[in-house]
Design a protein around this nucleic acid. Structure first.
Lengths: 143, 143
DNA sequence: CTGTATTCCTACTGTTTTAATAAGTATAGC
DNA sequence: GCTATACTTATTAAAACAGTAGGAATACAG
């Protein structure tokens, strides 16, 4: 399925914040450098996540972002809805069409409902854990 | 989820052909009139469905379209793939990102797999049947 | 109280995708 | 040969997307 760059970058940013905030905030510059995403682009995405109450910002020098709640309480649905309401929303376009209505009932509604449920069941913690597993498979070597 | 007008019009056209082909072919003009879709637009969509071996065309006067096989053998996945390969395809954009890989594994891959399976399980017959049910609920009155 | 590091806001721009239209060609029945 | 149809290719207008730019607001440090 087609996912916008904005949604993908948004999720990546949140996972980055989750991993790298050790009792302190994470800045746009940090995320940008680590994840190779334009800082100006992030400056457009992160405020949307703040408005959706997924992250909290600290302004001024030594400012940055932190998650508003534990990673296991932030679902991917929260994030996707905040950044692109069309992904999990309705989809039929034609009106006044009985056939379109039938397609909607047999197909789109069920697909949308599944996507909503599924994204509700996956949290930022799941992504972070998967990442830790992968890292364990490819261990770092120290000199 | 976002579905293109092309996919929706394509499915509507096929259901129309399924319903209205009584041992004969259905023309673009017929579909256009019944479904309120521009004939010129349909002329762009139907050839794609023919190339995907979902419908067969008869050229010349008295020409038109018919399904290549029974409606219960045409899945919605066949149709969606024929008209828009991005709907059921891969979705991650960022490369060289461990986090993007983890998101893909935890989220996109599973979602895509579900959508493929589900659309594989729904056929044109299902839509046509649902339509017949709805019509029965709202009976026509004859004078 | 000034400098600096940061978030925040709004607008802009170039590219791609989408939706639809247009014009004309090819085919086959009558 | 006329007509009704499918077929092909090109074009256009609008919208969405991805990313950029400039500067305002904020708060900490010295």
């Amino acid at each position: 399925m087609r996912i916008s760059s904005k949604v993908e970058c948004g999720i990546i940013s949140l996972v980055d914040i989750c991993i790298y905030s050790n009792n302190s905030v994470v800045t746009v510059i940090n995320i940008s450098a680590r994840q190779n995403i334009s800082a100006k682009y992030l400056e457009q995405i992160l405020p949307q996540l703040r408005q959706a109450d997924i992250i909290r910002s600290v302004k001024g020098s030594h400012g940055g972002y932190v998650l508003t709640r534990p990673a296991e309480k932030i679902t991917l649905r929260d994030v996707i809805d905040a950044l692109d309401s069309t992904v999990l929303g309705e989809c039929s376009i034609r009106e006044d069409s009985q056939i379109a209505d039938a397609i909607s009932e047999c197909l789109w509604s069920k697909m949308t409902a599944y996507l909503q449920d599924f994204t509700d069941s996956v949290t930022l913690r799941d992504i972070a854990d998967k990442l830790a597993d992968t890292a364990a498979d490819q261990p770092m070597y120290y000199i």
